[in-house]
Design a protein around this nucleic acid. Structure first.
Lengths: 146, 146
DNA sequence: ATTTATGCAAATCGTTTGCAAACCT
DNA sequence: AGGTTTGCAAACGATTTGCATAAAT
């Protein structure tokens, strides 16, 4: 799961951005590579006690700017972070539980995804907007909260 | 624009929730009814100096729980608020500028919307998730920031 | 040797809350 | 009167930042 290949690719992204791949950043990537859903900062530092909170915040900014990590906004008060799709090669969206706030990854049919891409591009163009990406979240109740 | 019909409908929603429709709440609805995009709290209190910040926060919670207002999460540090779709009768999504943070409303083709509803319902069911609604945002650069 | 990263503790800032006065009904 | 709402100022808490030390190159 957390392969040396992943570390190589993250290292390359950081290098391109003029950043070092330090051991704290490596450990952070290990934590993110070990889950299938985005984590909050308390969850990250809880999974690896050696990760200091302030450095984790700072390193997530660095990793995000380098394109290795993406920030996920759910409905509760925490930002969540996960490895960028460029690294996981799995384009996905999120199931967000409105009750407990948990987030899980989900994929939608490829045909729907293609159609979204096409039609949203048109909608954006018509509005004079330069589209970068779309965000599609399913909000409802997870199994435990239903 | 801000019709008495709107106030009647909001009043009804609040009544159903056991809440009063006070003049501060009415003024707040006037502000929200006067725009075509979601507003931050500074924007709201800036547009009507009579609205105190703390009461505005509290009243938005009340209006949201009653179903008259919905909270919009963009990419910057502020929550934004707009009248609920139930009141505007315009199902829409958001164009979010990644550079300046502004948000504008946008509608997508009805056929795409129908297909999304259908297919997301299936995806959610397959994941054991009880779907309430979806959130679709287009993130990119607005005309001024492109 | 010089630059960059780290981690503690303090600061920041959007949002929430306590409380006394004003408002409804 | 009896309960609710209001608005000021203070509290809260997630995130950011200053600074002295440690690590990386």
């Amino acid at each position: 799961m957390v392969s040396s290949e992943l570390h190589e690719r993250v290292g390359e992204l950081l290098r391109l951005d003029g950043q070092r791949y330090t051991s704290a950043r490596r450990q952070l990537v290990d934590v993110l590579g070990g889950t299938t859903f985005p984590l909050t900062i308390p969850e990250i530092t809880g999974r690896d006690q050696a990760l200091a909170q302030s450095s984790t915040y700072r390193n997530l900014v660095v990793l995000e700017r380098a394109g290795a990590v993406q920030k996920v906004v759910a409905t509760d008060e925490w930002y969540r972070y996960e490895l960028a799709e460029e690294l996981t090669d799995r384009h996905h969206h999120h199931l967000i539980c409105a009750a407990c706030g948990t987030v899980q990854d989900v994929e939608v049919p490829a045909a729907l995804e293609r159609r979204l891409d096409e039609q949203l591009a048109e909608v954006a163009t018509a509005a004079g907007f330069q589209l970068e990406h779309h965000r599609l979240d399913l909000v409802g109740r997870c199994t435990s909260c239903a």
